[in-house]
Structure formats: structure tokens, C-alpha cells
């Protein structure tokens, strides 16, 4: 359903961020995109909804070529692609509700958004989403009054308010502490499963990605160097993605993270989600 064909991006500075990336993501499939900083992860997902214009190559969503659409039709496609950001990118001075409703901007006429008179169905859906992410009582709080984890939950609700066909997730946990990072990652993956929503999740945290996501794509210097199941991640693969000295530092994995299950209660723990994963081995390899 999402197909990238030979996608390339060269910045005006001359840096080649993407170098002929081809990738197909089927309906309901979640893909974790891993790779060192500067590998082009961020450029890749921004080329999908053309926040960054690709230099070459094509992007298809449900058979529609996004690259080459005019402004108006591009906006129509963008409203069906939800996006979640590293630094949350909430509008800090607006309320939680306004932030969630901003996911509807592509659907409502300007006067409605200006007067904050969104259609009742949108408001109702927004309340439902805030309940789903556990922020029902924060409706009229300003976004800058929330904690990091709460902000990212609002970011998720905003993306879902778009009623998306695809989720682009850019380092959702990089600004969060380890425990919150897991909760957020779990929430995103649960929601994708509930809605059979395909997603691309950028992550610098290999261990976390492998814990929740089945399909891993490794990017290095703008090229896909690995595409396979999380269980196939081994020393060789990680060396291919990160290079020998980039990932080999032990000790970044903190043991107390393992005890976090008790806070989450009923979900059965990470092991249930990824029974095939040799966590001990990965813990030693990736930070």
C-alpha cells in the first residue's frame, strides 16, 4: 500500500541523505527504521508526505503517486498521513484539545478552525482519543503544562485525529526517559494493531524497536542495508548498519528498565509481544 521507488534526496548543501531507497509496506504492517544519526531516517519519512521534497524517485500511497501532486491534492493526501514527532511538536501555547483538533485541519474549512468551532463529530472523536491515550482530564490544560510522556500522548492523539491511513513516527521516544519511552512505544504499537494501521517508526534505540516491531529496516548513508524480521538482527547485521565501533559500547542498557513491567500490569510484558527475541544478547550489543 505504501511504496517507495528509488527515493533520493540531496540537500542544497550537497549532502546525500537518501540514495535510491525502495521499500514496500503492506496494509497493517509496522516497520521500524533504524540506523545511525545522519543515515537519512528523518529525511525518509519526511519525503513520504513531502515535508521535504525528494530529489528523485516516487512515493505511492494506495496507488496514488504522492510525488508530483499539486499543493491542493498534496494537502488532501497529507491529512490521511498522521505524523508523530521526536520533540512532540505540540503547539505549546494551545490547549490539549486544540492540539488534538488541529489534526482535523485538513478536513474543516478555515472559518471553523479559526473560530475553534469544529464539527461535533470531530470534537466527540477527539474526546474519545484523549480517553484512549489516558488524558481525558487534561482537555483544557495548555500543552506546555504537560510532562514529556503526556505531551507525546497528545501528539499521538493528534495524529489519530487525522483518521490516518498511514502513520509516520519520527523518534517518538528520544526525548523521554526509558520507562516512559516503553509506555509510549507500546501505546503506538497497540494502536496500530487495533486499527490495522501501517506505520514507519524511526528509532535510534534498536533494542526498543526490536522489542515491539516485527519488521526492521536498517538504513546507512541513505541506503537500505537490512530488511528483515527483528529476530534476524545479529552482530553482523548491526555491524552492517552501524559500523563496528558505533554500536559496540556495552553498559548503555540499564538493568532497572527490566523491572518496569509491574507498572504496566495487564499487558503481559514485552516478552509476550516478542517471544522470539533473545533479549539478553541484544542488550549486550545495542545501546
Amino acid at each position: 500500500m505504501l511504496r517507495l521507488e528509488h527515493l533520493a534526496k540531496r540537500y542544497p548543501t550537497g549532502d546525500l541523505a537518501l540514495d535510491g531507497v525502495s521499500l514496500t509496506i503492506d496494509a497493517g504492517q509496522v516497520v521500524a527504521l533504524i540506523g545511525p544519526s545522519g543515515a537519512g531516517k528523518s529525511s525518509l519519512i519526511r519525503c513520504v508526505n513531502r515535508l521535504i521534497e525528494p530529489t528523485a524517485g516516487r512515493v505511492f500511497l494506495h496507488g496514488v503517486e504522492i510525488t508530483g501532486l499539486g499543493r491542493r491534492r498534496l494537502r488532501r493526501v497529507r491529512r490521511r498521513i498522521g505524523m508523530i514527532f521526536q520533540e512532540f511538536a505540540l503547539v505549546e501555547r494551545l490547549t490539549v484539545m486544540e492540539n488534538v483538533l488541529s489534526g482535523r485541519l485538513g478536513y474543516v474549512p478555515f472559518w471553523r478552525s479559526l473560530l475553534r468551532r469544529f464539527p461535533p463529530a470531530d470534537v466527540e472523536a477527539a474526546f474519545g482519543l484523549l480517553e484512549r491515550v489516558g488524558l481525558a482530564e487534561f482537555v483544557d490544560k495548555r500543552a506546555d503544562a504537560l510532562s514529556g510522556g503526556q505531551r507525546q500522548r497528545v501528539g499521538i492523539a493528534r495524529a489519530l485525529a487525522q483518521n490516518p491511513q498511514l502513520l509516520l513516527v519520527d523518534e517518538p521516544t528520544a526525548s523521554l526517559d526509558p520507562k516512559t519511552a516503553r509506555q509510549i512505544m507500546r501505546l503506538i504499537c497497540e494502536i496500530c494493531a487495533e486499527r490495522r494501521l501501517p506505520a514507519i517508526i524511526n528509532s535510534h534505540d534498536v533494542r526498543l524497536a526490536a522489542m515491539f516491531v516485527h519488521r526492521i529496516v536498517g538504513l546507512r548513508a541513505g541506503q537500505v542495508v537490512f530488511d528483515g524480521p527483528a529476530s534476524a538482527l545479529n552482530d553482523d547485521v548491526l555491524t552492517r548498519i552501524y559500523g563496528a565501533e558505533d554500536w559496540g559500547t556495552p553498559g548503555l542498557d540499564t538493568p532497572e528498565e527490566e523491572e518496569e513491567e509491574e507498572d504496566e500490569g495487564a499487558d503481559g510484558g514485552d516478552a509476550a509481544l516478542r517471544p522470539d527475541l533473545d533479549r539478553q544478547r541484544l542488550a549486550g550489543l545495542a545501546g
Binding site: T95, E98, R116, P120, V123, E124, A126, F127, G128, D140
Partner: peptide, 18 residues
């Protein structure tokens, strides 16, 4: 929060706090 049953879902309104 007021006590009692939650309001029926379809009547939830929202206005920007003045």
C-alpha cells in the same frame, strides 16, 4: 468532576476556554 453517571457520549461539547 461532578458525581454520578458520565454524560452520554454524543452530547460532549467543547469551547476554547476564554
Amino acid at each position: 468532576m461532578t458525581a454520578g453517571a458520565p454524560r452520554p457520549a454524543a452530547t460532549r461539547h467543547w469551547r476554547r476556554p476564554p
